[in-house]
Amino acid sequence: MLSKRLVACLDVRDGKLAKSVKFVDTKDIGDPVEKAREYYLDGLDELVFYDITASSDKRNIMLHVVEAVAEQVFIPLSVGGGIRSVADATDLRLAGAEKINVNSAAVQRPALIAECAEAVGAQNIVLSMDIRSVAADARCPSGYEIVINGGRTPMGMDALAWALEGERLGAGELVVNSIDADGTRAGYELTLTRMIAEAVRIPVIASGGAGRPEHLQAVLTEGRADAALVASMVHYGDYTCSGLKRYLHDHGVKMRMSW
């Protein structure tokens, strides 16, 4: 039986680890390569690096980070942030990223998903979606709207429709990130996660809001997610990857328990 996955997300700015709260005011909290190695040895199932570097001339710092991590971390490595072209995707793949996350640029130009899927394989393309709750209307009948640019720009686009379109265009996996829940530590957005996970045939990674182990349990059962993404829970030492997996295992969630 397939295990559920614990995924840790490391936001990287100018080559350093950062963590945002509600997508504003990021602060640096350490060395991404060191953290990645620590989590890998502690049983993490998958790593996501998100490049939040603002200036484009510092972008290649990220390639070095990915290379350094790929040298010593032998689990799937996913990278996102600012990917606008097939060239961006193939550069990261060569540096050692298994999966490529596309987000804002795919919203603005959906063909990017198909182009990247063609170039590096559909199973390696992750469509990452930043989503906020809105009053359901004709534009957003699901009651959830896509936002881009790190949560700053609402697009008036229905989140469920975009998830289905992303799957159709060749995305191999979805990240469902709730902007409302992000950084609150009050739990994942279960209704949103479940709605999307039940609508698509590709795996769904739930993101945003994790604060306690029971939040992960809820999103992996009730929320129907295939994987739960954590960040601040593990970055500040409140919880460990192995501890979270042990909790989930003890509460009946199928997890990989030997590493």
């Binding site: 039986m1 397939l2 295990s3 996955r5 199932d45 199973q123 045939r201 590709i202 795996p203 994987a227």
Partner: peptide, 13 residues
């Protein structure tokens, strides 16, 4: 069962 995702992606025994 539409809940069984394809591809089979992740860790398995």
């Amino acid at each position: 069962d539409p809940q069984l995702k394809i591809p089979h992606m992740g860790w398995n025994e």
